[in-house]
Design a protein around this nucleic acid. Structure first.
Lengths: 191, 191
DNA sequence: TAGATTGTTAATCGATTAACAATC
DNA sequence: TAGATTGTTAATCGATTAACAATC
């Protein structure tokens, strides 16, 4: 929303603007924004650039973390192709797979490496974040390998609940949970 | 978790088993399961098959809804390839794109049609669910087309907040929200 | 019988919302 | 000045958790 308004040359935005666009309660928006430390002007709202900067710095999107992706299937390929991840604090430093047909190939201009190279590369390149897009059957195993390689956070696209030591940040992209909610809403309406 | 235990020939499962596997509070699990109407036995737990059936029927995963997917990019292709969606109540009835290079091609054995054919096909095939994997710039427009074609629920993989008439179910697969949470947790730890 | 587990009610907790003073 | 909006405190609401009787 902020980026769209900026491209329309707006300079300020109020919480009522945001709440209208996102269908949220304005107080909720104000309370959430206050966590970022942004300061607005009564009667005017927030400076658009200030607000963006505060959100970006709150989320760490103003500096890039090196990430590696394991599992160059369709989903992995899709993620590697999102060049706008650099606006979201991520840069891809490496991509891995175990399929001999994929290792050595270029995917979105990045060479796919064999998974065996992960430990060395993760350490050399100071990779903090692992993106897990492997089949469910090997998810735990690959996650363990990531942690051994010093990776601190895992973005888990598999439907597996990973069991890892404390202190490792695991964030699940809950695709099936989202589907379950959708399914229930449809089901509740039909029956 | 239930499917894995079933393949190991377990017949029953208790909420403490589930809570251990998913790291949830056992009371929470019990409360949630009660919404499905499943009935367990004190001292024993729930019959594994009963429980699966109750969850499936609560979510409507025991009958297939016909779905169409619009936007056969990498993400769309990935979704079309998940043959296990039929365990989650979805069958793909059609896939659409506007790119002439894609229209007519087979993707995972399904022919990609031109988006122009959506209204007719959606009506003829009684398609209830639309899966939106198009670029953000055309998300609203394509969603409007889906609604006009009689689609009742949209699974929205774009980062756009859709504006649609009341009564249309919209479920957002919040990929960027998930990334934001991950980013913040990393940021909060570092700084 | 003893003990584990379900199912549910009551208590707690935290998140959302309402209210309103401050201020531009 | 009047009015819109911020920022924050207090009230409400709902979700999570604790407690415990029922029961296999």
């Amino acid at each position: 929303v902020l980026k769209r308004l900026e491209s329309l040359n707006r300079r300020t935005i109020s919480t009522s603007d945001i709440s209208r666009a996102l269908k949220l309660d304005p107080t909720q928006v104000r309370k959430d924004l206050s966590y970022t430390g942004v300061v607005g002007k009564p009667r005017v709202g927030y400076n658009l650039q200030d607000l963006q900067r505060c959100i970006q710095s709150f989320l760490g999107w103003d500096k890039l973390s090196r990430a590696c992706l394991v599992g160059v299937g369709h989903l992995g390929t899709a993620l590697l192709g999102y060049d706008r991840f650099n606006e979201y604090g991520i840069c891809f430093a490496a991509a891995f797979d175990t399929d001999p047909a994929k290792v050595g190939c270029l995917v979105h201009d990045r060479e796919v490496r064999h998974l065996d190279e992960l430990p060395e590369m993760a350490q050399n390149l100071d990779i903090r974040l692992g993106i897990l897009t492997v089949p469910a059957s090997v998810a735990q195993e690959v996650a363990d390998l990531m942690v051994k390689a010093g990776i601190q956070a895992i973005w888990n696209f598999t439907p597996i609940s990973l069991n890892l030591e404390d202190g490792i940040i695991v964030e699940k992209a809950q695709i099936y949970a989202s589907l379950a909610v959708l399914s229930r809403r449809l089901e509740a309406r039909i029956s």
